[in-house]
Amino acid sequence: MSKLSHIDQHGKANMVDVGDKAITSREAVAEGYIYINLVTMQEIVQQQNKKGDVLTTAKIAGIMAAKQCSNLIPLCHPLMLSKVDVTIEIDEKNARLRVQSLCKLSGKTGVEMEALTAVNVALLTLFDMCKASDPAMRIEGIRVLRKTGGKTGEWQHPDTLISEPSSDV
């Protein structure tokens, strides 16, 4: 009936069977931004936010979220991630923080959803921890930058040259 991968022959939601797929090394990098006012930026930089260490808390939240992706998104496969890294870059010039995630595994399905989930939850954590100081923050630009592995091989977002995540925060 359908050529859609998540719909069965009766039109019902279906988790894709990846049992016959080859195990390959897979990796995905995603990013997103949160725009904040300069007062809130300084509170973060000087670690003076009333809720504590904003950057470390957001990083840990992103890592935890990537590991929970299949519990949050109904048709995602549970994955044995071998690496999750979340970095947060402070961009005072543009009044924003850039969150970037890297997810890796050896498996039968990609890790784009895990990378996106890590970015989203890290951004939401930043919002939650800073909302008293800046309720007008906005989250934008969430996207997959790059993925490797599987039968499609390497893919990079067409409008970007990316930098690898650093271990800044």
Rank of each mutant, 00 (worst) to 15 (best):
G153P: 00
D91R: 07
V119L: 05
G149I: 06
T40A: 11
S106H: 14
G52V: 12
H10T: 08
L124Q: 12
T160D: 11
F127R: 07
T160W: 13
N14E: 05
D53L: 04
L55G: 08
E140N: 09
D17H: 01
S166C: 02
L105W: 11
P74T: 14
P135R: 04
G110S: 05
N37S: 06
L97R: 05
T160M: 11
V16K: 02
A30Q: 03
D20R: 05
E43G: 06
H6G: 06
D8W: 12
H6P: 03
T40I: 10
V119G: 02
D8S: 10
A136I: 03
A22T: 09
T160R: 04
G107Y: 01
V29Q: 00
E92K: 04
V119K: 01
R138F: 10
S167I: 08
W155I: 02
P78N: 11
C76D: 01
K104W: 11
V84G: 14
P158D: 04
V29M: 03
A22M: 07
S166H: 01
L102V: 13
T160V: 15
C69G: 02
C69D: 02
G141F: 13
V86I: 11
N49K: 02
V18D: 08
Q100Y: 08
S5H: 12
I60L: 15
V169A: 09
E114G: 12
R146P: 00
T125G: 04
T125H: 00
K50T: 14
L145Y: 06
T109K: 12
Q156H: 02
K131I: 13
F127L: 07
N14P: 00
N37E: 01
K83Q: 14
D85N: 10
T152E: 08
Y33K: 09
H6C: 10
V16S: 05
T56M: 10
S82D: 15
L123R: 01
N120Q: 12
L145Q: 07
K12I: 09
K51Q: 13
R138A: 09
Q9L: 07
G153C: 02
I23L: 04
S5R: 06
S82F: 14
L102G: 10
D159P: 00
R146L: 12
Q100E: 13
V119E: 00
L81Y: 11
K147R: 10
D8P: 04
W155R: 00
Q9D: 14
T160Y: 15
I7G: 06
A136Q: 14
L123W: 01
G62K: 03
K104G: 10
L79V: 10
K131C: 14
P135L: 05
A61D: 09
I34G: 04
C76N: 00
K131H: 12
K50R: 14
A28W: 05
I90E: 03
M41A: 05
V39T: 12
E27I: 03
E27F: 06
L161E: 15
G32F: 15
T109V: 14
A28R: 00
E31F: 08
V121P: 01
M80C: 09
Y35W: 08
F127E: 01
L145N: 05
S106E: 15
E112P: 01
Q47M: 10
L79M: 12
M15T: 13
V54M: 06
L79E: 08
L79N: 03
M113A: 13
A13V: 11
D53G: 03
D85A: 11
W155G: 02
G62F: 09
